[in-house]
Structure formats: structure tokens, C-alpha cells
Design a protein around this nucleic acid. Structure first.
Lengths: 231, 231
DNA sequence: GACTGTAGGCATACGACGTAGACCCGTTGG
DNA sequence: CCAACGGGTCTACGTCGTATGCCTACAGTC
């Protein structure tokens, strides 16, 4: 009886076994790494190790690391959905916004990708999932009587609000949640009292930030200001 | 006659001569690199080379690369000024916002630092220049009768608006400004027409984005909604 | 069956990276 | 004169992204 190696059984017993590789599994695993350790800890080599493969294998499925980062952002954004047929366009936008916020809270380490990848990748080269919400919102709003320009303006206003809000809210996430005293928990005692008297006095307000309510207020203002006619 | 090397004359003639090193010069040079080649091209080694020094010299003035990145963001933000004594608080905030936008336009490659470093560095550990505008805005608004909480809320709303706006506007910066046809210039022809019909049809609107006007509109809405009493 | 193309995986290698540790020198204060 | 010290440098380690090239297993054709 000869050897006839049964694929992926004897090879590399140490690694968490290496099934067939595909982009989807790569991105899912990459997202796990980002969630656990942050974007800067995601490397091609670590990802390959986590998948039980050789680093170079990854390049059969993604052209380079930048594409991988775009892909991770894409896997998150494609989870957002908009129903372009709903006549309650404001309700759809509101639901979209809430989902986006929740996504950011569930994957705070991935937020830098969500907000900065678009700066690195021109619109037309972004992965399809990233563009889907845009197209769907355009369909939703033009269907509700918005002109194209007004719909685009509304989308931009919405993403602006969302990016701004999420960046705000994630800064409030506290380094040391065990500490009960706000001043200590935020490390504010390090600030020179002479230079930052007001800031130090606002420890309580800094600590009690209601992100959900804040977003709703922003949405109230934004949505009431949007009209089918345009800006 | 012996050697008695005159410091920084014979050493390493290739490098652009190495004066005494200090944090300020380091940060200025780092910002140049970022402006020219982008954040990801800024490395300790390149920075040292540009300054005509050994890479390890940098560590005498900054504890690590993260601090350097914070420092670069800091050199930008400390250029913003707010006059806490001005009774026209809305005017001050408006001017602050315009300066921030201009800063972003002048240093687009540094914008990822401006928006994401705060996520990596807890508030109290940020460089002093970064906190200065916050303290000054608090002074401005409490001086105008705002409660502390209302002033903080206003500041957060403002930075949210600014971050969101700047991220929006910088995405519009076009890859190939030579191309006259909007569809070509934005690369939109790559998009599958079947999946993104609306998006492709909005090339003209995508290309003609007036960032300054957009920001002013946002400010009009925000500032008219702010009241000394709070949210 | 044999032949050929191709897709996916792996080994090796190169140059760049961040930074720890040790050494070295010039200045300063006792 | 000596000790301490601030600042510059050298060497070295482990990690990174990825170019190149080979090897194997399967798909399709005859």
C-alpha cells in the first residue's frame, strides 16, 4: 500500500486545520483578528497562521493587503440593508443609521477602516458591497420623489452625520471601566489643572454620554431638513 | 595634526546635514513626509534619513512611533485658535470650523491621523495642543452663558460635523483631474451598469461638490440649534 | 487512458520596518 | 578631577509585505 496522502490531514498538524481557502473565510478571519487585537495587528502572516496556511496562499485570493482591508470594511458594510421600495423613506434612513451605529459598537476596532478606507480607494474601485447602500439609498429617495442631486446630497449628509457621530461616541469608550470615580477613570487627573480647568470639571458629563439619544437627535434634525426638492 | 572631528560636518556627507535634533523639527519633517507620501509611508527610518540622523536618535525625543503620530496630529491642531473672550460665540465657532476645513484641505494625507488618533489615545493622554481647542471652546461657551454640559455637547456636535464633513469632502478629490468627462474621471465606467444605474447617472453631481457651501449649510443648522440651556 | 492547462498551495528570499540594549562622547556641576 | 547625564550611534532581533518559482491536483480534450 502506497502513501497517497489524504489531503489536509497529515499536513502541518500544529495549525488549526487548513481547509480549502477562499476570500470569504479569509475576510471573516481577518475581521476576528481586527476585533480582538486591532487593525494594526492584522498582518498577512498572522492571518495565514490563523487559517493554517502559508502566507503566500492569501495572494491567490486577494491582490494585496490594501484589498484585504477594503474587503474587511466591505464585509461589514454589506450587512447594512435598505429597502428601496419602502415609501417611508425617512424611516428607512433612520433604520439604516441605527444599524450603522450598532455595527460600529459591535466592531469598534474596525471603525478606522470604515472611515478611512474610502479616502484611500476611489469610489469606483470600492468593493461592491460598499457601494450597495449608496445605490439603494439613491433608489429609495428618487423613488420618493427626490431629484438625483437631492438624493445624493441626502446620502452625503447622512454618512457625514454617521461618521462624525461614531467617531465621537467611540472616543467615550473608557479605558478603565472598573474605576468608579469619573475623574480617575478618564485619567483626567493627569491634566494640568491650571491649563485645563473646565475640562477637568466636566468629568461627570464626559462619562455619561448617551450615544443612542445623541444620534436620534442628529437624525431628527437631519431628516426634518431633507426635502425632495434638494438642498 | 589630529582628527578632532568637527561634529556634523564630516559625518555622513550624503545626508542633508544633521543639525541638533529636537521634537519640533522631527514633527515638522514628519508632517512633510505625510503630506508628500501619505501616512503609511512615514517610518522612523525614513524620518531619520530625512533628518540626517540615526533612526535610534528619534527615540531620545519621542517614546515610540504612536507618540510621533499623535505629535503630528498635534502640530496641526495646535494651529487652530479660538478666542474665548469673544462675545460672538457663534462667529468664533464658525471661524474655527472654517479653519479646520482649510487645515484638512491643506493636509489631506494627514486627515486619517486627525480623525483616528483620538480613537487610539484616551483623552487625557493626548498631547496638550490637541486639547487646547476643546478647553478654549468650553471657555468661550460657558463665558456666553452655556452650562458646562451644554458647552460640551456643543463641542461634540461641532467636531462630529467637522469630521463627517471633511471625510465627505476628501472623498470627492478626484483621481485624475486631467480627464474632462466626469464619468471617465471618476472611473465610474467600471461600475456594472446593471447593478448601479443611479450611481452612474450621477457623475456630474458627484464631480461638482462645493465643500465650502456644504459646510456653511451644516454650520447654519448646527449653530441655530445650539442654546445655552443645553440639548 | 494520456496530454495539457490551470488553479491553488508552499518554500525561499529580499528589503524595510519598529525598537531593545549597549557603547560612546561632550557637557555640566560638584 | 570626577561623576552624572543628555543625546547620538551601532548592532541586532523579530516581524512585515510580497516577488519569484516550483509542485500538485484536478478539468477538459482527444
Amino acid at each position: 500500500m502506497a502513501v497517497t496522502p489524504t489531503r489536509a490531514s497529515d499536513r502541518d498538524a500544529g495549525a488549526p486545520f487548513a481547509e480549502r481557502l477562499d476570500l470569504e473565510r479569509m475576510l471573516a478571519c481577518a475581521l476576528e483578528i481586527v476585533d480582538r487585537d486591532g487593525v494594526e495587528k492584522l498582518s498577512m502572516r498572522r492571518l495565514a497562521r490563523a487559517l493554517g496556511h502559508d502566507p503566500m496562499s492569501l495572494y491567490r485570493h486577494a491582490p494585496n493587503k490594501a484589498a484585504l482591508l477594503d474587503g474587511v470594511a466591505d464585509t461589514l458594510l454589506r450587512r447594512l440593508s435598505v429597502d428601496p421600495g419602502d415609501p417611508d423613506w425617512a424611516g428607512q434612513l433612520r433604520a439604516f443609521a441605527r444599524s450603522y451605529r450598532q455595527l460600529a459598537l459591535d466592531h469598534p476596532n474596525a471603525v478606522p477602516l470604515l472611515v478611512t478606507r474610502p479616502l484611500a480607494t476611489p469610489l469606483a474601485l470600492r468593493p461592491a458591497g460598499t457601494l450597495r447602500p449608496l445605490e439603494d439609498v439613491l433608489a429609495l429617495l428618487t423613488g420618493a420623489g427626490f431629484t438625483g442631486a437631492a438624493a445624493l446630497h441626502a446620502y452625503r449628509s447622512l454618512t457625514g452625520l454617521l461618521h462624525g457621530h461614531v467617531l465621537n461616541e467611540l472616543q467615550e469608550l473608557v479605558d478603565n471601566p472598573d474605576e468608579t470615580d469619573d475623574l480617575l477613570r478618564l485619567g483626567l487627573y493627569r491634566l494640568p489643572l491650571r491649563e485645563f480647568p473646565l475640562l477637568r470639571g466636566l468629568a461627570a458629563e464626559l462619562a455619561s454620554y448617551d450615544g443612542a439619544a445623541e444620534l436620534e437627535r442628529g437624525l431628527d434634525i437631519l431628516l426634518s431638513g431633507l426635502t425632495p426638492g434638494g438642498p
